[in-house]
Measured scan of single mutants.
Amino acid sequence: TTQFTVHSPEQAEQWKEYAKQKGLEVHVQKKNGTWHVTIH
């Protein structure tokens, strides 16, 4: 599991796309103005 924080919805979307291409599961949670992205 990879977990990191991004600071814009655009970055979060890019990671979603990346994960989809790799066939991975991605979870994005918005918290205090940042987005926590978890890739399984």
Rank of each mutant, 00 (worst) to 15 (best):
E17Q: 12
N32K: 06
H7M: 10
K30N: 12
T1A: 10
A19R: 01
V26D: 00
S8T: 13
F4M: 05
V6E: 02
W15C: 08
K20G: 05
Q3R: 13
Q11M: 11
Q14S: 09
K31G: 09
V6N: 01
P9I: 15
K31D: 08
A12E: 02
H36G: 03
E10D: 07
E25A: 11
K31S: 09
A12H: 02
K20T: 08
Q3D: 06
H7F: 12
T2E: 07
E10N: 05
Q29H: 11
E13Q: 11
F4D: 01
Q11N: 04
E25Q: 12
T34C: 13
W35Q: 00
G23R: 04
Q21G: 09
G33V: 02
K30S: 08
K30M: 13
K22S: 07
Q14E: 09
T34M: 14
I39G: 00
E10P: 02
K30D: 07
W35G: 00
E17V: 09
E10I: 07
K16L: 12
Q3L: 07
E10G: 06
T2H: 14
V28K: 01
N32G: 12
W35K: 00
E25D: 09
K22E: 06
G33I: 02
F4R: 03
W15R: 00
L24V: 06
I39H: 00
E13T: 06
T38V: 09
W35S: 00
E17R: 11
S8I: 03
W35R: 00
H40Q: 10
E10H: 07
K30I: 13
A19N: 01
G23Y: 03
Y18D: 02
H36W: 15
F4E: 02
T34A: 14
W35E: 00
G23P: 03
L24Y: 11
V6F: 06
K31Y: 12
K30G: 06
K16T: 08
K16P: 00
P9Q: 15
E25P: 05
T34I: 14
T38K: 05
Q21R: 13
W35N: 01
W35F: 08
L24Q: 03
N32D: 11
T2A: 10
V37F: 05
V26W: 06
I39V: 05
K22I: 08
Q14P: 03
K30L: 14
T2Q: 12
V6H: 02
V26S: 04
P9H: 15
K31V: 15
Q3P: 03
T2D: 06
Q3S: 14
G23W: 03
T2I: 15
N32L: 06
K30V: 13
T5W: 12
L24G: 02
A19L: 06
T5F: 12
L24R: 04
T38Q: 05
T5D: 07
Q29P: 00
